[in-house]
């Protein structure tokens, strides 16, 4: 009896510490979000005077103003279009390649894989001039296709690395079974490997979505036409060179963060409910 009580006490103390830690980390994460939300409802004059998290007056019109002044209507659609196309492209292209790197044997496999990995490591900030001249020659400058292809390339190496690591972990039995059933390589990739890799695919999607959604430098470089610009460039207008309209900027940032949060909520389910191999086999 005594030892049972001892173990219960130990467990409770342990759990208390775990929860305390979880909650304090969680609070530090929520705080900036709340600050952003509350700042988005203040005015330029009060934002740095009234530092409380609950503003005295609520200026919801900031959202409308941010939407119009940042030119969000068109930009928003553009960003959704670029992000879906790029992420879709990356998921297909990188999962195909990662699957091949993980499962197949062919000459030069390791060399090609290591080159992809190397690319992840070398930051080439200077390369944008070359990229610009290249797109110019290919007549892809100031076109969505040019931008989308560039952005697919940006996320490719990391996504291949992520996917390959997880494909390596997957058991081969299911694929073998499918092969015996007469499934082609493409069929196995599509119907066996991809569904099994759902947790990591969700990570890849979230990672690349955030990357494309927040990108502005390449977009500014590649696009001349304002009608092609993504959301971030609307935000840059609010951020301002000299005058920053802080409440509008915060409203704009909140609007910008929303789709990402929604996507994360959606994807997060795949990570949580991820079917374990056992369940699939069963």
């Amino acid at each position: 009896m005594k030892s049972a009580a001892y173990y219960t006490a130990k467990k409770i103390t342990f759990n208390t510490f775990v929860y305390l830690f979880l909650i304090s980390v969680a609070l530090s994460c929520i705080f900036p979000l709340l600050w952003m939300l509350s700042s988005s409802l203040k005015t330029q004059e009060t934002i740095f005077q009234d530092m409380s998290l609950i503003p005295r007056e609520l200026h919801f019109e900031n959202y409308m103003r941010a939407w119009t002044e940042g030119g969000f209507g068109r930009c928003f659609l553009n960003s959704i279009f670029y992000t879906t196309s790029v992420v879709f492209g990356i998921v297909i292209v990188s999962s195909l390649a990662a699957y091949a790197f993980s499962r197949f044997k062919f000459p030069g496999k390791n060399l090609i894989f290591y080159i992809f990995m190397g690319a992840m490591m070398i930051p080439i900030p200077g390369s944008f001039v070359a990229l610009y001249v290249l797109l110019n020659k290919l007549h892809l400058r100031d076109t969505p296709v040019g931008y989308i292809l560039c952005m697919i390339n940006v996320g490719l190496s990391t996504s291949i690395f992520l996917l390959k690591t997880f494909f390596d972990k997957l058991p081969h039995e299911l694929e073998d079974a499918a092969r015996i059933d007469g499934c082609s390589k493409w069929g196995i990739w599509r119907h066996v490997a991809l569904p099994l890799a759902r947790p990591v695919l969700a990570v890849v999607i979230v990672f690349n979505t955030l990357n494309v959604w927040n990108e502005y430098f390449l977009a500014l470089l590649i696009f001349d036409s304002p009608r092609l610009m993504p959301l971030q460039l609307g935000l840059m207008k609010l951020q301002g060179e000299f005058v920053t309209q802080y409440p509008l900027l915060m409203s704009g940032l909140t609007i910008t963060a929303l789709p990402i949060v929604l996507l994360y909520l959606l994807m997060q389910k795949y990570i949580v409910k991820g079917v374990t191999q056992g369940a699939v086999v069963g």
């Binding site: 610009y132 110019n136 430098f217 500014l220 470089l221 304002p226 460039l233 840059m236």
Partner: peptide, 22 residues
Amino acid sequence: FELYAPSDAYSQKVRAAAQGNN
């Protein structure tokens, strides 16, 4: 008038455009 902000990126855009005569 076409606005490109932030200024860091703008100045790189001008340099790149100069390379392509655009």
